[in-house]
């Protein structure tokens, strides 16, 4: 028995990888289940900012993710954009980190627009409802320039209006009444890189900033949230599902049966409704299941490794 357990330590890592691949692939074929969730308080604060920012002011999204981290970041971006569209908020997006980033954001928006079309909801139109400013190379310089004056930093950018004519972006209805970075309703950074640190350093004191970051970056971002520099923060895959779960259930809001599914115990007076229309559960629900499988496997592997180690010690102790 001890020998069998001790041999478990010699398992080739390739076999462990195979088990991981096979179990995770199950979720790729569309296995989706809305498992129960208790959102983190930082995610709740982010959702609260999303739903309570001034609806008449545009939201600025610094979208610095690429395909590499699409597992987490696309879910964040789509959750954010779905909420903005469902609550009729105009938005501007751009990247300061990677040339690929604007394109993946465009693709994500196109998918949501197609989804809304199928659901009979209003499609969001570029120029009238949102603006795509593309890439600003060099995060440090660009964000510094935004902090100084978005009029001059964005002044050279042009976009096609509803008639197809290229015009300066400040003519767009989205940027009406906006002259400086402080005029945005909220500023979100969807990021997989240190561009969010630079955004906090350069713009943190001027705007209401929320962060949507990958799991690896989470611990590094928590100090910013704890110190109030980020008003809300959602981390990794769990954060994607947190957002979707709150988009479905709201915060401290009773459902039809009178149950409050998501309770914010630290702010019981805060009542934030679910989003009024459109999809809520998306990539987060699918990947959350994959996360459950992966973590369970990891815990099992760790347990196996430890039992094997103890068994080996027992055997060695016995032969001495």
């Amino acid at each position: 028995m001890w020998k069998l357990l001790a041999d478990a330590q010699k398992i080739k890592r390739e076999y462990l990888f195979l088990v991981l691949v096979v179990s995770l692939s199950a979720t790729l074929i569309g296995l989706k289940k809305a498992l129960p969730q208790i959102p983190d308080s930082n995610s709740m604060d982010l959702y609260a900012v999303m739903m309570t920012s001034d609806p008449n002011k545009p939201v600025f999204i610094q979208s610095d993710w690429t395909n590499s981290t699409r597992g987490e970041s696309r879910g964040h971006f789509q959750g954010l954009v779905r909420s903005l569209m469902a609550t009729n908020r105009k938005f501007v997006f751009y990247s300061v980190a990677d040339p690929q980033a604007p394109q993946v954001a465009r693709d994500a928006i196109r998918t949501i627009n197609q989804e809304r079309k199928k659901q009979g909801l209003r499609e969001y139109k570029p120029w009238d409802d949102y603006l795509d400013l593309g890439l600003f190379p060099n995060a440090e310089n660009s964000l510094n320039a935004f902090s100084n004056s978005i009029k001059s930093a964005w002044g050279g950018r042009r976009a096609k209006d509803s008639t197809g004519r290229e015009r300066p972006v400040f003519d767009s209805p989205v940027l009406q009444g906006v002259t400086k970075i402080e005029d945005c309703g909220a500023y979100y950074v969807v990021s997989a890189s240190n561009s969010i640190d630079i955004a906090i350093e350069r713009l943190g004191t001027k705007v209401t900033m929320g962060g949507l970051v990958t799991g690896v970056m989470g611990p590094g971002m928590l100090p910013y949230y704890r110190s109030g520099q980020l008003k809300g923060l959602t981390i990794g895959l769990v954060g994607v599902y947190d957002l979707e779960y709150m988009m479905e259930h709201g915060i401290n809001t009773a459902d039809e049966a009178g149950n409050i599914v998501v309770k914010n115990r630290t702010k019981p007076e805060q009542v934030i409704p679910p989003v009024p229309e459109g999809t809520t559960f998306g990539q987060g629900a699918t990947n959350n299941l994959a996360l459950h499988i992966a973590l369970t496997l990891m815990i099992l592997a760790i347990a196996l490794g430890n039992v094997g180690m103890i068994a080996k010690k027992k055997l060695e102790g016995g032969t001495k």
Binding site: L133, G134, F136, P137, A145, S152, A153, G155, G156, R157, R158, P168
Partner: peptide, 9 residues
């Protein structure tokens, strides 16, 4: 400043 080609500074 006149708009730059390609929008970059």
């Amino acid at each position: 400043p006149a708009p730059a080609e390609g929008g970059e500074v």
